[in-house]
């Protein structure tokens, strides 16, 4: 029981990170119908920017009060990663808008390769370890098993991750449902040509979608850095595929779906590792993806597609 609760907490934490990345996939897919393959690498870029900012603040400038440092890191990495998201869209996707549909997928894969190797070349291929910054937590329950005592702990780190995710989710849902930007986005989702005829600046709306996705991915990057303490140039691929799985599982195009899918994928992965085998945890995630797509192509919260004849 204690083990179960601990795994549940861990799964929700991991799932929050996946959910934040998944939102970027789902928004982009919703608005221009393409898989932004480079999004996982934007997440990786975000984590590198967060790491560098953190180090500059603490070792070079000598800030010591952690909450302020983290807040600055959060804001700075959101800003800088957004610039990356914007640039990728501008260079690799916008010239191909309205072109044949495999083309942006190929440029997306190309961009993913470019980003990975750019970071590898400029920052080195070795992993970057960061010692745990936030320690301690709340002990929820204690119990005994045959292997000794087991303590269920909700660490402060986990609290921060889950709370930040919830706050950002709420903000973004409000942004999409209440503001004119959100309206423009939904209009572009429905019919881009019509939206532009009605005065919606389609290019700007799509750019902003990428910017928002990148900002959320950078938050996920920071969380990942703090939670695991190790990043390298390759973390984006796997996290990206899993986040995409989450977006599909929740129903692509749906924001709450992406979050729900993220949580589910996080839980599945953690429970699979906890109860079956760590080695095959990725197989579990990918199998879920395949099964969902085959039996429930529109995902949990997505709208079913009707075949038009």
């Amino acid at each position: 029981m204690e083990y179960f609760v601990q795994q549940l907490i861990n799964g929700l934490t991991l799932g929050s990170i996946y959910g934040l990345i998944a939102i970027g996939y789902t928004m982009v897919y919703g608005i221009i119908g393409m898989i932004n393959f480079a999004h996982g690498d934007i997440f990786m870029i975000g984590s590198f920017i967060a790491l560098a900012t953190f180090l500059v603040l603490t070792t070079v400038l000598g800030f010591a009060f952690l909450p302020v440092v983290l807040l600055i890191v959060l804001i700075v990495s959101m800003l800088f990663t957004s610039a990356w998201g914007w640039t990728v869209e501008r260079l690799a996707y916008r010239p191909l808008r309205g072109s044949f549909r495999l083309a942006p997928l190929i440029t997306a894969i190309g961009m993913s390769i470019v980003l990975q190797n750019f970071v590898q070349v400029t920052q080195g291929a070795r992993v970057k370890p960061l010692p745990p910054q936030i320690q301690g937590g709340i002990t929820l329950m204690e119990g005994n098993t045959e292997n000794g005592a087991i303590v269920v702990q909700l660490s402060y780190m986990q609290i921060i991750i889950i709370v930040t995710t919830l706050v950002l989710m709420t903000l973004f849902t409000l942004l999409i449902s209440r503001t004119s930007l959100g309206r423009a986005q939904r209009a572009c989702e429905q019919d881009r040509k019509m939206a532009s005829l009605l005065g919606v600046n389609v290019d700007r709306t799509i750019s902003l979608t990428f910017v928002m996705g990148a900002a959320l991915a950078s938050v996920a990057g920071l969380m990942f850095l703090l939670l695991y303490g190790v990043i390298d140039f390759y973390i984006g691929f796997l996290a990206g595929v899993k986040a995409f799985t989450a977006a599909v599982l929740g129903g692509i195009g749906s924001l709450p779906g992406a979050m729900l899918g993220g949580l589910l994928i996080g839980l599945i992965e953690v429970f699979w590792s906890g109860y079956f085998s760590v080695e095959y945890k990725d197989v579990a995630a990918f199998s879920i993806l395949a099964i969902v797509l085959i039996f429930l192509p529109s995902g949990l919260l997505g709208k079913p597609e009707v075949e038009k004849v």
Partner: peptide
């Protein structure tokens, strides 16, 4: 067999998943 009724991008992503599954199995 199971994936061919999927369309476009979904097919792409499931084939990607299968490719990765085979690699992870070979690895472990």
């Amino acid at each position: 067999f199971p994936v061919l009724r999927l369309r476009g991008d979904y097919l792409a992503i499931v084939t990607l998943a299968f490719g990765e599954i085979i690699r992870v199995v070979l690895l472990n």
